[in-house]
Design a protein around this nucleic acid. Structure first.
Lengths: 248, 248
DNA sequence: CGAGGTGTTGACGATGCTCAAGGGGAGTGG
DNA sequence: CCACTCCCCTTGAGCATCGTCAACACCTCG
């Protein structure tokens, strides 16, 4: 179980190569990353607020989300994570977790110990830079979500989220044209956007009625990409992808 | 102008020591950081969306904020920055800025080139870790703000902000009991919390009426710290301060 | 076949927005 | 020194986006 899995690190390398350029040496070092691979069921916490984890979690397959509960029991989802992401990479340098990580679907994840990660970063500063950059992009995504929630009405807010997820999935090769898997429920969308399930439903109805999207089952199909981008005031710079081509 | 200023780096060291422990060697390296010191007027952009800066900006005195405009001209403020902060440290590893940085008051700032920073980080990985940690805490603050904006109503949202700023100012020694400078206008608070100026005003009135705060001129006085924390559902873990003592 | 999660729809209500007007203080210029 | 201006704060009235409550349809799975 605890071993090197070159084929599993492929998704990590693909993700990193969507945001920067790796040398052969770096690619080899990353391929050799030892991790413990675990299969998880849906709706299962991987780490929780207050934990002091000694390892971080690479998503190999499935979707997860980072979230936090308020004192009166409401949930804010901070990000949806897709294969290639390391959602709790922050815990490498922040001892106590200030948010939780949960699966949305059945997932396969690879746990990498902080010891291994930190040693690798120390020895190869360029790799530290790559991971650092990844956490900075997470930060940029948080800022953009904050902007959406704070300033955009529910319709553009929803459109923005759909655009972002599509671009990110495309960047790691998990889309088919402008179609992708969408295992996220309306309740989860609501907790991400700061609106109620009922309202999520109405907004989605409206988008469907206008022919922008086709969302049913666990499949999202964007029928009018340009229009949706415009509706969502979506501008992908903040994702800091290497090829803007991937975005457009 | 471009020289070493041990007395100016003191605020940076104080900030870093509020979130981690520095060795003598590290402290010396930081003290010797060469920077270009510049005095700025209020309401002046330091860097803007789309810029590709070759240096980052240490706040020596005054307040700044990071913000972003939406397509239809609304502004979301992502963070208020106080002395000791390096708001655009992210630009060290993200070439294109996805948000802007502006002064709120007259400021003294120190520009440190990315070349200097990056070389220092490469040579002393422990310092890289310190700066990395700092950017991770910024991320944690973004998440917390997102939670506030998405899930808390305007009254607790405001209370939360006041608590956070007080704790952060205390951590770098810029408070006097539960009293601190508050040069932030109601319009700026509104853009940070995602509510209108009018509503900010009403909420503040309410807090005054309940004897929680005394806010006038550019001075904030928290009269009932415990009550305000409770009202704001404020729990300072996410600031990752070394001494929780500083917070309580 | 029943149960539970998810999606859908309707009616009503409230938090917070819009529009509008006026007050106060600090800085500037005559 | 006073008038003027500009920015910030304040207050009122009406309104709308979105929340709450409630009910029901659909689907999967045991």
């Amino acid at each position: 179980m605890d071993a090197t899995h070159p084929f599993t690190t492929a998704i990590l390398i693909r993700k990193l190569e969507s945001i920067l350029t790796l040398t052969d040496e770096e690619r080899q070092a990353l391929e050799a990353l030892p991790m413990q691979i675990v299969a998880l069921k849906e709706n299962q916490d991987i780490v929780r607020v207050g934990d002091r984890p000694s390892r971080s979690c690479l998503i190999l397959s499935g979707f997860t989300c980072m979230y936090k509960m308020t004192g009166d029991g409401k949930r804010q989802i901070h990000n949806f994570n897709i294969p290639g992401d390391i959602p709790d990479l922050q815990s490498l340098h922040l001892q106590v977790l200030d948010n939780s990580l949960s699966t949305l679907t059945p997932c396969s994840v690879g746990f990498i110990t902080h010891e291994v990660l930190d040693k690798l970063c120390e020895r190869q500063y360029r790799i530290a830079r790559a991971f650092w950059r990844e956490t900075l992009i997470d930060g940029a995504i948080f800022r953009e979500w904050m902007t959406s929630i704070g300033q955009r009405e529910s319709y553009p807010r929803m459109a923005h989220l759909l655009c972002e997820m599509m671009v990110r999935l495309r960047a790691v090769g998990l889309s088919d044209g402008y179609s992708c898997k969408w295992p996220i429920t309306q309740a989860e969308i609501g907790d991400a956007l700061g609106i109620t399930t009922v309202h999520v439903n109405r907004v989605l109805q409206e988008m469907r009625a206008e022919g922008l999207i086709d969302l049913k089952g666990d499949r999202l199909n964007i029928l009018a990409w340009e229009k949706l981008m415009q509706a969502g005031d979506f501008e992908p710079t903040y994702l800091h992808l290497k090829h803007e081509a991937t975005a457009a």
